[in-house]
Computed example of a mutant assay.
Amino acid sequence: MAKSRESADQLALLIKEIRNDIIFGAYAPGTWLKLTDLQAHHGASAFHIRRALAELANLKLVDHAANAGFRVATPDDSTRVETRFVRTVLERSAAPLIAARATSEDVAELARLAEAFDQSIMAEGRREQALANHNFHSKLYATAGNQVLCDMINELRNRSQHSTTGRWRSVEGLRASSLDHFSIVKAIEMRDPIELDRIIVRHIESF
Protein backbone atom coordinates (compact mmCIF):
# COMPACT_ATOMS: atom_id res chain seq x y z
CA MET A 1 0.00 0.00 0.00
CA ALA A 2 2.83 2.41 0.91
CA LYS A 3 4.56 1.70 -2.40
CA SER A 4 1.32 2.33 -4.27
CA ARG A 5 0.85 5.65 -2.45
CA GLU A 6 4.44 6.64 -3.25
CA SER A 7 3.89 5.84 -6.94
CA ALA A 8 0.69 7.92 -7.01
CA ASP A 9 2.49 10.85 -5.39
CA GLN A 10 5.33 10.61 -7.91
CA LEU A 11 2.85 10.61 -10.78
CA ALA A 12 1.01 13.62 -9.37
CA LEU A 13 4.29 15.52 -9.06
CA LEU A 14 5.30 14.56 -12.60
CA ILE A 15 1.98 15.78 -14.00
CA LYS A 16 2.41 19.07 -12.14
CA GLU A 17 5.97 19.57 -13.41
CA ILE A 18 5.14 18.95 -17.08
CA ARG A 19 1.92 20.99 -16.77
CA ASN A 20 3.85 23.95 -15.37
CA ASP A 21 6.46 23.69 -18.14
CA ILE A 22 3.65 23.93 -20.70
CA ILE A 23 1.74 26.73 -18.97
CA PHE A 24 4.84 28.80 -18.27
CA GLY A 25 6.22 28.63 -21.78
CA ALA A 26 8.98 26.00 -21.71
CA TYR A 27 7.34 24.37 -24.75
CA ALA A 28 5.72 26.28 -27.59
CA PRO A 29 2.28 25.20 -28.88
CA GLY A 30 2.63 22.31 -31.31
CA THR A 31 5.95 21.09 -29.85
CA TRP A 32 6.33 17.30 -29.93
CA LEU A 33 7.12 15.95 -26.47
CA LYS A 34 9.74 13.19 -26.77
CA LEU A 35 9.48 10.46 -24.17
CA THR A 36 13.26 10.01 -23.91
CA ASP A 37 13.81 13.74 -23.32
CA LEU A 38 11.09 13.87 -20.66
CA GLN A 39 12.46 10.75 -18.96
CA ALA A 40 15.92 12.28 -18.75
CA HIS A 41 14.65 15.68 -17.61
CA HIS A 42 12.30 14.38 -14.91
CA GLY A 43 14.11 11.18 -13.95
CA ALA A 44 10.96 9.15 -14.53
CA SER A 45 10.08 5.91 -16.30
CA ALA A 46 8.50 5.80 -19.74
CA PHE A 47 5.40 4.29 -18.12
CA HIS A 48 4.94 7.24 -15.76
CA ILE A 49 5.69 9.77 -18.51
CA ARG A 50 2.97 8.23 -20.70
CA ARG A 51 0.48 8.26 -17.84
CA ALA A 52 1.27 11.90 -17.09
CA LEU A 53 0.86 12.90 -20.73
CA ALA A 54 -2.45 11.02 -20.94
CA GLU A 55 -3.72 13.01 -17.95
CA LEU A 56 -2.52 16.27 -19.52
CA ALA A 57 -4.40 15.28 -22.69
CA ASN A 58 -7.55 15.02 -20.56
CA LEU A 59 -6.84 18.56 -19.37
CA LYS A 60 -6.55 19.72 -23.02
CA LEU A 61 -2.95 20.82 -22.54
CA VAL A 62 -1.51 18.21 -24.91
CA ASP A 63 -2.86 16.37 -27.94
CA HIS A 64 -2.28 12.68 -28.63
CA ALA A 65 -1.73 11.55 -32.22
CA ALA A 66 -1.98 7.81 -32.83
CA ASN A 67 1.39 6.26 -33.80
CA ALA A 68 3.05 9.66 -33.45
CA GLY A 69 3.01 10.61 -29.77
CA PHE A 70 2.09 13.70 -27.76
CA ARG A 71 2.49 17.37 -28.56
CA VAL A 72 1.57 20.61 -26.82
CA ALA A 73 -1.99 21.54 -27.71
CA THR A 74 -2.70 24.33 -30.17
CA PRO A 75 -6.34 25.34 -29.74
CA ASP A 76 -8.15 26.09 -32.98
CA ASP A 77 -9.84 29.45 -33.53
CA SER A 78 -13.31 28.27 -32.50
CA THR A 79 -12.00 26.73 -29.26
CA ARG A 80 -10.07 29.91 -28.49
CA VAL A 81 -13.19 32.06 -29.04
CA GLU A 82 -15.38 29.77 -26.93
CA THR A 83 -12.82 29.66 -24.12
CA ARG A 84 -12.52 33.45 -24.14
CA PHE A 85 -16.31 33.77 -23.92
CA VAL A 86 -16.53 31.50 -20.86
CA ARG A 87 -13.54 33.20 -19.26
CA THR A 88 -15.21 36.58 -19.70
CA VAL A 89 -18.42 35.38 -18.05
CA LEU A 90 -16.60 33.86 -15.07
CA GLU A 91 -14.03 36.60 -14.54
CA ARG A 92 -16.66 39.35 -14.78
CA SER A 93 -18.74 37.54 -12.17
CA ALA A 94 -15.77 37.73 -9.80
CA ALA A 95 -15.33 41.51 -10.13
CA PRO A 96 -18.03 42.65 -7.64
CA LEU A 97 -16.91 40.02 -5.14
CA ILE A 98 -13.30 41.17 -5.36
CA ALA A 99 -14.19 44.85 -5.01
CA ALA A 100 -16.35 44.13 -1.97
CA ARG A 101 -14.06 41.66 -0.17
CA ALA A 102 -10.52 42.91 -0.81
CA THR A 103 -8.63 44.02 2.28
CA SER A 104 -5.80 46.53 2.42
CA GLU A 105 -3.43 43.54 2.70
CA ASP A 106 -4.91 42.05 -0.49
CA VAL A 107 -4.41 45.35 -2.32
CA ALA A 108 -0.81 45.58 -1.14
CA GLU A 109 -0.08 42.00 -2.23
CA LEU A 110 -1.68 42.56 -5.64
CA ALA A 111 0.38 45.73 -6.08
CA ARG A 112 3.53 43.75 -5.27
CA LEU A 113 2.61 41.03 -7.77
CA ALA A 114 1.78 43.63 -10.44
CA GLU A 115 5.24 45.13 -9.91
CA ALA A 116 6.83 41.66 -10.15
CA PHE A 117 5.19 41.13 -13.55
CA ASP A 118 6.36 44.56 -14.72
CA GLN A 119 9.92 43.70 -13.67
CA SER A 120 9.75 40.40 -15.61
CA ILE A 121 8.99 42.03 -18.97
CA MET A 122 12.60 42.26 -20.13
CA ALA A 123 13.47 38.72 -19.03
CA GLU A 124 14.50 36.38 -21.83
CA GLY A 125 11.78 33.96 -22.93
CA ARG A 126 8.29 33.76 -21.52
CA ARG A 127 8.67 31.59 -18.42
CA GLU A 128 9.28 34.39 -15.89
CA GLN A 129 6.53 36.52 -17.40
CA ALA A 130 4.03 33.66 -17.46
CA LEU A 131 4.79 32.75 -13.85
CA ALA A 132 4.50 36.36 -12.66
CA ASN A 133 1.25 36.76 -14.60
CA HIS A 134 -0.12 33.52 -13.13
CA ASN A 135 0.74 34.66 -9.60
CA PHE A 136 -1.02 38.00 -10.06
CA HIS A 137 -4.23 36.53 -11.47
CA SER A 138 -4.34 33.64 -9.00
CA LYS A 139 -4.23 36.14 -6.11
CA LEU A 140 -6.74 38.40 -7.86
CA TYR A 141 -9.43 35.73 -8.22
CA ALA A 142 -8.69 34.11 -4.86
CA THR A 143 -9.70 37.46 -3.38
CA ALA A 144 -13.26 36.83 -4.59
CA GLY A 145 -13.62 34.30 -1.80
CA ASN A 146 -15.30 31.60 -3.92
CA GLN A 147 -12.94 28.66 -4.32
CA VAL A 148 -15.01 26.88 -6.99
CA LEU A 149 -15.14 30.04 -9.11
CA CYS A 150 -11.41 30.63 -8.60
CA ASP A 151 -10.54 27.06 -9.61
CA MET A 152 -12.65 27.26 -12.78
CA ILE A 153 -11.09 30.57 -13.79
CA ASN A 154 -7.57 29.28 -13.17
CA GLU A 155 -8.22 26.12 -15.16
CA LEU A 156 -9.42 28.08 -18.19
CA ARG A 157 -6.59 30.59 -17.90
CA ASN A 158 -4.04 27.76 -17.71
CA ARG A 159 -5.60 26.08 -20.73
CA SER A 160 -5.32 29.23 -22.86
CA GLN A 161 -2.26 31.03 -21.48
CA HIS A 162 0.43 29.04 -23.32
CA SER A 163 -1.21 29.69 -26.71
CA THR A 164 -1.96 33.39 -26.47
CA THR A 165 -1.76 35.23 -29.78
CA GLY A 166 -2.33 38.73 -28.42
CA ARG A 167 -0.22 41.26 -26.54
CA TRP A 168 2.53 38.91 -25.49
CA ARG A 169 4.10 38.95 -28.94
CA SER A 170 5.85 42.26 -28.21
CA VAL A 171 7.41 44.20 -25.34
CA GLU A 172 4.88 46.95 -25.99
CA GLY A 173 2.08 44.45 -25.55
CA LEU A 174 3.56 43.15 -22.31
CA ARG A 175 3.79 46.70 -21.00
CA ALA A 176 0.12 47.25 -21.90
CA SER A 177 -0.76 44.14 -19.89
CA SER A 178 1.31 45.47 -17.00
CA LEU A 179 -0.58 48.77 -17.08
CA ASP A 180 -3.83 46.81 -16.91
CA HIS A 181 -2.57 45.03 -13.79
CA PHE A 182 -1.86 48.34 -12.06
CA SER A 183 -5.27 49.67 -13.17
CA ILE A 184 -6.93 46.56 -11.73
CA VAL A 185 -5.22 47.19 -8.39
CA LYS A 186 -6.34 50.83 -8.43
CA ALA A 187 -9.97 49.89 -9.17
CA ILE A 188 -9.95 47.43 -6.28
CA GLU A 189 -8.39 50.00 -3.97
CA MET A 190 -11.19 52.43 -4.96
CA ARG A 191 -13.78 49.62 -4.51
CA ASP A 192 -15.09 50.32 -8.01
CA PRO A 193 -16.59 47.09 -9.43
CA ILE A 194 -17.72 48.79 -12.65
CA GLU A 195 -14.21 49.98 -13.51
CA LEU A 196 -12.77 46.64 -12.44
CA ASP A 197 -15.22 44.83 -14.73
CA ARG A 198 -14.27 47.10 -17.64
CA ILE A 199 -10.55 46.49 -17.23
CA ILE A 200 -10.99 42.73 -16.86
CA VAL A 201 -12.96 42.54 -20.11
CA ARG A 202 -10.36 44.63 -21.96
CA HIS A 203 -7.57 42.50 -20.52
CA ILE A 204 -9.16 39.24 -21.70
CA GLU A 205 -10.00 40.56 -25.17
CA SER A 206 -6.41 41.65 -25.79
CA PHE A 207 -4.84 38.41 -24.54
Rank of each mutant, 00 (worst) to 15 (best):
R101S: 07
I188P: 02
A2R: 15
R167Y: 07
F207D: 08
V185M: 05
D9T: 14
D192M: 05
L35P: 00
L13R: 09
I22Q: 00
V72Y: 10
Y141D: 01
L196R: 03
L131T: 14
I23E: 00
R5G: 08
L13A: 12
Y141W: 05
S78N: 09
L38K: 01
D180I: 03
H203F: 09
L110E: 04
A187K: 06
R80C: 05
A40C: 06
H48T: 07
E55M: 04
L179G: 08
W168L: 10
N135T: 08
D192F: 01
L149S: 07
D9Y: 11
L33T: 13
L90K: 00
K60W: 06
R191G: 05
A176E: 10
K139W: 02
S160N: 05
R50W: 01
I199T: 05
F85N: 13
E91C: 11
L140V: 02
H181V: 03
M122L: 12
L131K: 15
A94P: 03
L14E: 00
S206F: 07
A8C: 09
D63I: 15
L59H: 12
L38A: 04
V185I: 07
A100G: 10
Q161K: 11
K16V: 10
H42C: 02
P193Q: 06
A8M: 05
A57E: 15
P96N: 09
V148W: 15
L14C: 02
T103S: 15
E124P: 04
P29R: 05
R92M: 14
E105W: 15
Y27G: 03
T36H: 08
L140A: 04
F70Q: 06
A132C: 06
E155P: 03
W32G: 00
D21Y: 08
Q119R: 15
G30D: 02
A187Y: 01
L56T: 14
A99V: 03
V148Q: 12
D77R: 09
S7G: 11
S120E: 13
A68R: 11
I23D: 04
S93T: 06
T165L: 07
E109Y: 15
Q161F: 13
M190R: 14
S4D: 13
L113G: 02
L149I: 11
L33P: 07
S4L: 13
G166A: 08
K34M: 13
S177I: 04
F182T: 15
N146A: 09
N135Q: 14
R157H: 09
L179M: 08
N158F: 09
S183L: 05
M190D: 11
L113P: 04
L38H: 05
D151W: 09
D151A: 08
E91S: 10
L56I: 15
G69T: 03
N158R: 12
S178K: 03
V89C: 06
A123D: 12
R101M: 05
A73G: 04
D192T: 07
R112A: 13
H162P: 02
F85G: 09
S104N: 11
T88K: 14
V107Y: 02
H203R: 11
A28E: 13
D63C: 11
M122S: 12
G145P: 06
V107C: 03
L179C: 12
A123R: 12
